[in-house]
Simulated scan of single mutants.
Amino acid sequence: MFTIGEFARHGRVSVRMLRHYDAVGLLRPARVDPYSGYRFYEAGQLARLNRVIALKDLGFTLDQVRSIVDDEVGADELRGMLRLRRAELEAAVAEATTRLGQVAARLRAIESEGHMPPQDVVVKSLPAVRLAELSGTAASFAPTDIGPVVSSLYQELCARLAAAGVTGFGPGLTYYEESPEGDGAILAHAGMIVPPGTAAPDVDFVELPPVARAATVIHRGPMDEVLPTVQTLAAWTAAHGHQVTGHSRELYLECPEDTSKWVTELQEPLADQDHPPLAD
């Protein structure tokens, strides 16, 4: 038998918590001294305590915890429940982390208002490229809309190219245009630069023509946090009297597993200064 203090130490919980669990009928002492009122616990009760704490820490209410442990759920079933709950929490954490990154990017854009951008914008020509691509529609340019679409397109594209035995492709290049569906929808083309003559089933191959003049800037970090760089490029083109024409592009120069180390060149084709495009 353990005193309540000893049991709390072995279970790595507080005495106050054990008293509360006793009061709500979740974990009763093995014996209560009728004269002193002291609570005593058995070593075997640590197993129930472990289950209670694990379920509580994973977000289950005390009523749910009681229902689970009172039904004497087996260890295998309990492990399955905990793994499922852990996966749900990990997904929530990942979503929250992504949103925090987007908030930080928006804050950086706000803080940079009225200041000279630290990035160097370069005007240069872009060569013609042959792309193996897949296309998909996103509801908008919001990271929560465009990110999953582009990511899934690249996963499927790389799988199809690999299945066809195509090697030596890349880097990736994404370009965007308004979707025929309208209502602000975006048609994203996720492509890989491939050598001439490359072929693969169920993959589209397109030739992007050369661009005489494009404003380009390097973005470092995940694409979820690209907003300040995008707005830097937009502010620069406007300040220098340029007009953007054609499809905006993203050229992924370095894409390690750690997305914080990604290096992406944003490219905005510019209208010819002598022959600007007609207004819509």
Results as ranks from 00 to 15, higher is better:
3 T>V: 02
5 G>V: 02
8 A>I: 03
8 A>F: 05
8 A>M: 03
9 R>Q: 14
10 H>F: 14
10 H>N: 09
11 G>R: 04
14 S>C: 02
16 R>L: 10
19 R>L: 11
20 H>M: 03
26 L>S: 08
31 R>Y: 14
38 Y>L: 05
38 Y>E: 08
39 R>L: 09
39 R>K: 12
41 Y>Q: 07
43 A>T: 12
44 G>M: 07
45 Q>N: 05
48 R>A: 05
51 R>S: 13
53 I>Q: 14
55 L>N: 02
56 K>R: 15
58 L>E: 08
61 T>A: 09
63 D>F: 00
69 V>C: 05
69 V>G: 07
70 D>A: 11
71 D>G: 15
72 E>Q: 15
73 V>C: 07
74 G>I: 08
77 E>S: 14
78 L>I: 07
78 L>H: 05
82 L>R: 08
84 L>Q: 14
86 R>G: 11
86 R>T: 12
87 A>C: 06
90 E>N: 12
93 V>F: 11
94 A>D: 13
94 A>Q: 14
95 E>L: 13
99 R>W: 12
101 G>R: 15
101 G>M: 06
103 V>Q: 10
104 A>H: 13
104 A>G: 09
105 A>W: 03
105 A>S: 09
106 R>K: 13
108 R>A: 15
111 E>P: 05
112 S>Y: 01
113 E>G: 10
116 M>N: 11
119 Q>F: 10
120 D>Y: 08
121 V>S: 01
122 V>Y: 05
123 V>E: 11
125 S>W: 04
129 V>D: 01
134 L>R: 10
134 L>N: 09
134 L>C: 08
142 A>N: 11
144 T>K: 12
144 T>C: 06
144 T>S: 14
147 G>W: 05
148 P>D: 06
150 V>F: 05
150 V>C: 12
150 V>Y: 06
153 L>N: 03
155 Q>H: 13
157 L>I: 04
157 L>W: 08
157 L>V: 07
157 L>K: 05
164 A>C: 02
164 A>E: 00
165 G>F: 02
168 G>F: 00
170 G>L: 02
170 G>V: 02
178 E>N: 12
178 E>F: 10
181 E>P: 04
184 G>M: 01
184 G>V: 02
186 I>F: 07
188 A>R: 08
189 H>P: 06
191 G>H: 02
191 G>R: 02
193 I>Y: 02
195 P>C: 07
197 G>H: 00
197 G>N: 01
200 A>H: 01
201 P>W: 00
202 D>Q: 11
203 V>R: 00
205 F>E: 01
207 E>R: 13
207 E>T: 14
208 L>M: 12
210 P>I: 00
214 A>T: 09
216 T>V: 05
218 I>C: 06
218 I>W: 05
219 H>C: 04
225 E>R: 15
225 E>Q: 15
230 V>Q: 15
230 V>G: 09
231 Q>T: 12
232 T>S: 14
233 L>F: 06
237 T>S: 10
237 T>L: 09
240 H>E: 14
241 G>L: 02
242 H>S: 00
244 V>C: 13
248 S>V: 14
252 Y>H: 10
252 Y>L: 01
253 L>P: 10
253 L>T: 08
253 L>N: 07
261 K>T: 10
261 K>G: 12
263 V>A: 09
264 T>V: 11
264 T>K: 03
269 P>S: 00
271 A>N: 04
272 D>Y: 04
273 Q>A: 15
273 Q>S: 14
274 D>W: 11
275 H>P: 06
276 P>I: 04
278 L>F: 12
280 D>F: 15
